[in-house]
Design a protein around this nucleic acid. Structure first.
Lengths: 101, 101
DNA sequence: CGAAATAGTAATCGAACGGTGACAGATTGT
DNA sequence: ACAATCTGTCACCGTTCGATTACTATTTCG
């Protein structure tokens, strides 16, 4: 499932939790958090800390993956957009990536 | 890329940022955060708020997906897997979605 | 060498986090 | 009806976040 907001994430966590037949208390304990925190997360709390989120997902055996949408910069697409290459070279010229090479 | 820890996430964010030729200040501004925050996130800060993380990933055109590792029960067509069905029915009997309607 | 840009760090401060414990509402089973 | 269970909410409190504003490396190029 695609996650765009904290609400998406909360909904998915809840769905998975109930599917596994766990109640909030059980999951909170397993993830090492408080039940209050879990309630708020399932409701889409945007302020929740990523560390606790990851622990919770792990407790639910949920894997999380990230992926770059566009390879580097949307090339192609109709217009003869060579400028993209130039802009990249330009930015590289200004101050090289530094880590490169 | 599979994300298991905040460090994984920070590394991926940094890699993507540099690949796009952005510096920390540019990304921080685009994501509506402070540069200091971004520095810490790239270093793997587990206390970072999920809301800001999601904004940052969006600014980098990174999509994030979650997936249940084990399917709880395979509703595959006509398989002779009765026990799973029962457990599902059991959990459903205990408490339904409730917030519906 | 020196200037410019990028990245890391420090101190401060208001705001929000997360934990605890308790309570009310809703739902289910006896 | 009653008890048991699960969920949502509340107040309190110590801790920590994130923004801001500096300052210090480090790198790169003229």
């Amino acid at each position: 499932m695609r996650i765009r907001t904290a609400t998406d994430l909360g909904a998915f966590i809840r769905e998975r939790r109930t599917k596994l037949g766990m109640d909030q208390a059980a999951l909170a304990k397993k993830a090492g958090t408080s039940r209050k925190w879990l309630v708020e997360v399932e409701q889409g709390k945007p302020g929740a800390e990523i560390g606790l989120i990851l622990r919770t997902l792990k407790s639910l055996e949920i894997s999380i993956a990230v992926e770059a949408d566009s390879p580097v910069e949307t090339p192609s697409l109709g217009k003869a957009k060579a400028p993209d290459i130039n802009s990249v070279l330009d930015s590289l010229k200004k101050r090289t990536v530094k880590k490169q090479i």
